[in-house]
C-alpha cells in the first residue's frame, strides 16, 4: 500500500512490519446517512495517539467502526495488517463511561474480570490466574482496595479507572479509548495518563478519542484532526497548527451534512 500523506511515516515502524492500525477509505453511516467520510489513516508505531475534533465530528463513531460496533458502508480497518476478527485479543477497548448502567449489580472486581472473558471463551469461568491479573490491573490504576465495592458507589474518575483496569486485563497490544478523560477529576486524569504513558513505554499503541485541545498538545505524540472527514494527521507539533484547527473547528462540514442528507434520501442536494 503506497500512498502519500502526512502520517505514512518512515520512522519507528516495527521491524518493517505492517502498520499497527490502518484505516483505509473508511466511510460510516447511521442509517444511510454518512457521518464519517473516507478516512484514510495509518498508525505504524507505538505511541500515544489522539483523535481530536469538535462535538459530533464522528470521533467516537470512527473508533466504534474500527471495532466493528457500527457497520462501515465503505473501506476497511486492519490491525497488525489483519482483519480485526483474527486479532481481537490484541485490541483493548475502553468505551465511554455513560454507555453503561452503573447501578448494575456487579462489583469492581467483577467488571475488571470481564477483561479476561475474551480469552476464556465460552462457558469457562475466571480462575485464580484471571483473578490475579484483575488484581494487578486494579493495582495499576490505584483501586486495589476497592475491589469489592459496588460500581455505583465509585466517583466518576474511579469508574473510568475501573474501565481502564478492565482493558488492562485484556493484555492487548493496541488500546482504543473513547473519551477517557470526560467528566473525570484531575487526580484520576493524571493517574489515567500515567498508565497510558506506561503502556506506550511497554511498546503498546494507545489511541485516545479526546476533545480537549489544551491537554492534547501536551499528552499526545501524534494526533489526527477529525471533523466528519480526516483533516490532518501526524506528529502533534506538525498537525496542531492554527490553520488545521481552523479547518477542523470551523470547517466545511455543512457541505458534508447536506450531501449526507441527499445520500440518505437517495436524491440530490439542491
Amino acid at each position: 500500500m503506497s500512498h502519500a500523506g502526512v502520517d505514512r511515516g518512515q520512522e519507528g515502524s516495527r521491524a518493517g512490519g505492517p502498520p499497527l492500525v490502518e484505516f483505509h477509505d473508511v466511510t460510516v453511516a447511521y442509517g444511510r446517512r454518512p457521518v464519517i467520510w473516507n478516512v484514510d489513516l495509518e498508525i505504524d508505531a507505538a505511541c500515544l495517539f489522539g483523535i481530536i475534533g469538535p462535538n459530533g465530528a464522528g470521533k467516537s463513531t470512527l473508533l466504534k467502526a474500527a471495532l466493528g460496533l457500527v457497520p462501515m458502508v465503505g473501506g476497511s480497518v486492519r490491525f497488525f495488517g489483519r482483519p480485526l476478527r483474527e486479532v481481537r485479543s490484541r485490541v483493548g477497548y475502553v468505551p465511554q463511561r455513560e454507555t453503561v448502567d452503573w447501578d448494575f449489580p456487579v462489583n469492581v472486581m467483577d467488571v475488571v474480570l470481564m477483561g479476561t472473558y475474551g480469552r476464556l471463551g465460552w462457558f469457562r469461568r475466571p480462575g485464580i490466574r484471571e483473578r490475579q491479573l484483575a488484581r494487578d490491573s486494579l493495582d495499576r490504576v490505584g483501586l486495589a482496595d476497592l475491589a469489592g465495592r459496588q460500581i455505583g458507589r465509585l466517583s466518576g474518575g474511579q469508574q473510568q479507572r475501573v474501565f481502564l483496569a478492565r482493558a488492562l486485563a485484556q493484555q492487548a497490544d493496541v488500546y482504543l479509548l473513547d473519551e477517557p478523560m470526560a467528566g473525570v477529576d484531575m487526580r484520576s486524569q493524571e493517574q489515567i495518563f500515567r498508565v497510558l504513558a506506561e503502556l506506550k513505554a511497554e511498546g503498546r499503541l494507545v489511541v485516545v478519542v479526546h476533545h480537549d485541545l489544551r491537554t492534547a498538545a501536551e499528552w499526545f505524540d501524534r494526533v489526527a484532526l477529525v471533523d466528519m472527514r480526516l483533516v490532518a494527521a501526524g506528529p502533534t507539533a506538525v498537525v496542531l497548527t492554527p490553520e488545521n484547527l481552523q479547518r477542523t473547528y470551523a470547517g466545511h462540514i455543512d457541505v458534508l451534512e447536506e450531501l449526507g442528507r441527499a445520500v440518505a434520501t437517495r436524491g440530490r442536494t439542491p
Binding site: A4, W37, N38, R229, G251
Partner: peptide, 8 residues
C-alpha cells in the same frame, strides 16, 4: 478539505 492520498 480532507487528508486523502491522491489515488483515494
Amino acid at each position: 478539505h480532507a487528508d486523502l492520498p491522491l489515488d483515494h
